[in-house]
Write a protein that binds this DNA or RNA. Structure first.
Lengths: 252, 252
DNA sequence: AAAAGATTCCCATTAAATGAGAATTTTGTA
DNA sequence: TACAAAATTCTCATTTAATGGGAATCTTTT
């Protein structure tokens, strides 16, 4: 195993399977000599990416919290979320969640969220949790904003199997892109409606989506215009904020 | 440059200096060939630890949010914070912040926090932000819980220069350990009082502290007993929760 | 104090990282 | 669209580090 994967494959174990591993288990799981695993783990511990606990077990280390803290201060989307999402759910005037999401490999990840205090409808989108890219208004808005070639790559990797589905999804995405809005119902989470707006900044290379997620029972055509207008205006605010933050960064 | 440092040194740049770097800047800063830096950065981008933005710049990538999400679900201390800190600040009945902190290399890091809705007094302790280990009730409670040998190591690295200071600090820490409580005023943040309780779990190898931080003007002897009793009881709750969570983890 | 378990050390072998420059791709601009 | 400049990748000979097996050491438990 070569390069960064040597470390990343170990770290991924702690996310995807169990949160606690012994060096011997790692060696069994990944294949390779115990002494090699011990050496590699020791390096990760020294850097704070892992830490040793009891009974020869290791878990993820505090360095990730430091990097996350750094991103909270510097990442354009993460910062935008901290600034705009709270007020967005308030303005929505209905029990809901707001989600700011982006592409993460072949999946979509929420990078910021907010919930009205009385929210009951769960959403699978949680900050930092990778989600499939084909389902939900949130994901489709991101897909719609993608350059055609990248979208085709994604389809090749995780997309619809048969050509008809692929064709119809492509059509759907074109419409979403044209309107700037994506709406789905119960596609990812049963009983939930999602409304999403594209959030893009060409010059910053950002392609994201801003969503409101609420219970189907709380949603009807009467509140649709307000929610859509809120999404559109807040998406614009976020785009502008990122643009300004970027300019301020260049010559402060 | 060898081993994980090859990657870690690059990642650290994004925390400690600027949040955005070009490959060429990295090569200048760390020394080494551009082609090497490009290759290494490419690996980090592939793993989501960095991402490329515009104008040949790179920034921290979304993988950190995924690892942070994983820790939120699995790390004993982080989970404890999410469960107990909100109610703690409510019960305090005074404008304040609650901080759960731990050792991070030669520094102390807050891993969870909560603030009463009306909080005005700032604290330097922020989730994921490394802080010096010699100042504040929060840090001293952690120091006090450390095994003697580890404490001496720390003192050698960042501790008081002259022997008298070192001696008196050691005495202070012994008292803190005996009482289970550390109280300081204005040591780290001007105008703030900190009250901290040790949070330990021998069998889990955890040594942390739970603190309440409030404005000096809001603090007097009349509320001290309530705050201390709250801290002590919540510290105990957290220790028990971690113990139980650990047991549940072993045979669920 | 002994035993079992965990971790580090050692070192010959194998494999990967490095750097310089050329080649290619991407981006910005006319 | 084409050109120029910048960014990134590629190539390959050389240098350096990773690997694995087993012995040695350190830790924990009994």
């Amino acid at each position: 195993m070569a390069g960064f994967d040597r470390y990343d494959n170990i770290l991924k174990l702690f996310i995807h399977q169990r949160s606690s591993w012994t060096a011997i288990d790692i060696a069994h799981e990944l294949g390779g000599a115990q002494s090699t695993v011990y050496r590699t783990v020791r390096e990760l511990v020294a850097a704070g990416f892992l830490e040793s606990t009891i009974e020869a077990h290791y878990r993820l280390g505090p360095a990730f919290l430091e990097f996350e803290y750094s991103m909270r201060a510097s990442d354009p989307l993460v910062r935008s979320g901290a600034i705009f999402l709270e007020t967005l759910v308030e303005q929505a005037g209905v029990s809901c969640s707001a989600v700011l999401a982006r592409l993460y490999g072949n999946r979509v990840m929420c990078v910021a969220d907010a919930h009205s205090s009385d929210v009951t409808q769960e959403t699978s989108f949680k900050r930092g949790r990778p989600m499939p890219i084909l389902l939900s208004a949130t994901s489709k808005a991101i897909l719609a904003g993608l350059p055609g070639r990248r979208r085709e790559q994604l389809f090749d990797a995780v997309g619809p199997e048969n050509p008809e589905e692929r064709q119809s999804l492509t059509e759907e995405l074109k419409n979403i892109k044209k309107r700037g809005i994506s709406i789905t119902s119960g596609e990812l989470d049963k009983g939930a409606v999602g409304l999403a707006s594209l959030v893009r900044n060409q010059s910053l290379g950002i392609n994201a989506s801003l969503s409101l997620i609420l219970a189907t029972k709380d949603y009807d055509e009467s509140i649709k215009p307000r929610l859509l207008s809120l999404l559109t205006s807040n998406a614009k605010l976020i785009e502008n904020f990122m643009e300004d933050a970027h300019k301020g960064m260049l010559q402060p």
